[in-house]
């Protein structure tokens, strides 16, 4: 197994400062032929190592439909992520293992209305799916993105959100927690805006949500209140991981390995797990 734990080397192609504490790293394999073999689907994650500091789990924030690179958006939160933020620059090299885990149920989503509910850095895994769906736009019906952040400065992917807003086939709803002078859009927490502003169609709609644990919890409550069924609510879990191979035991929730059976779960599946996430 030791070989499986040895990462491939990637070069940082571009660093984008998304918010004061989130940076997106655009990565390319040093060995260019690797990129073709690196096939992944929205929802999967990689193990990202800053050699010497350690390894962290991040979802892939871009879609394989945009070829030649992949993105990881990293929030400065712990020891390794702080090191990454402080020392990793364009041209530097990092280790990548993956892709690991399952992906969003792409077949199930076909022909459905899609509602994306994201909060903060939780937009990263959704962005992968959003890009994928926009690139295959004809496969899906109505397309709504609800995205909330604490402040307008904390919104990730600002440029890309503008692109989505310019796209006539995409309905984008933005919200921030507290009023700001220059902010003309919605104000309020995500579940509130979901109920009061978005007011989604329940029929034939799949909801994909990701954000801080507390946001997910209340969003699911709101969705249930609106009348969504458990199998139609899809989320992706954050759990401490180390190996990504279903061996190290960290991501166990009951007999489920989040790194193998997840990180994407429907609310129906989550309900059968012990309440430990």
């Amino acid at each position: 197994m030791e070989q499986l734990l040895v990462p491939m080397i990637c070069k940082v192609d571009k660093v984008i400062q998304e918010t004061p504490d989130v940076k997106t790293y655009r990565l390319k394999f040093r060995d260019e032929g690797m990129m073709e073999k690196f096939t992944y689907l929205p929802g999967q994650f990689v193990e990202f190592s800053l050699l010497g500091s350690g390894e962290c789990t991040f979802c892939i924030a871009s879609s394989a439909t945009r070829t030649g690179y992949f993105d990881c958006s990293i929030k400065k939160a712990g020891v390794v992520t702080a090191d990454i933020h402080n020392s990793l620059e364009e041209g530097d090299e990092v280790g990548i293992r993956g892709p690991f885990g399952n992906w969003f149920p792409l077949e199930d989503l076909k022909g459905k209305n899609l509602l994306f509910v994201g909060g903060g850095i939780g937009l990263a895994p959704l962005r992968s799916l959003i890009q994928y769906c926009i690139d295959n736009r004809n496969d899906y019906k109505d397309f709504t993105i609800l995205y909330g952040a604490r402040t307008s400065a904390d919104m990730c992917y600002k440029e890309e959100i503008k692109e989505w807003q310019d796209n006539k086939t995409v309905n984008v709803v933005l919200t921030i927690d507290k009023p700001e002078e220059t902010w003309t859009s919605n104000v309020g927490v995500v579940p509130k805006i979901l109920e009061e502003v978005v007011n989604p169609v329940i029929e034939n709609t799949k909801v994909i949500t990701c954000g801080p644990p507390i946001m997910i919890k209340y969003t699911i409550l709101s969705l249930k209140k609106l009348g969504f069924a458990d199998p139609d609510i899809i989320t992706t879990l954050e759990m401490k991981m180390q190996c990504g191979l279903g061996k190290c035991g960290r991501c166990n929730i009951g007999s489920t390995y989040v790194c193998k059976d997840g990180p994407v779960f429907t609310n129906e599946q989550l309900k059968s797990l012990p309440d430990e996430f």
Binding site: L5, L51, G52, S53, C243, K247, C248, G249
Partner: peptide, 24 residues
């Protein structure tokens, strides 16, 4: 018990990555 952790030990520019026991 088979849970483990992965950690790096780096001195100057070179280092070793270890896989060692851990406990829940």
């Amino acid at each position: 018990c088979h849970c483990f952790k992965i950690s790096d030990e780096k001195v100057k520019d070179t280092g070793v990555r270890y896989k060692s026991y851990d406990s829940c």
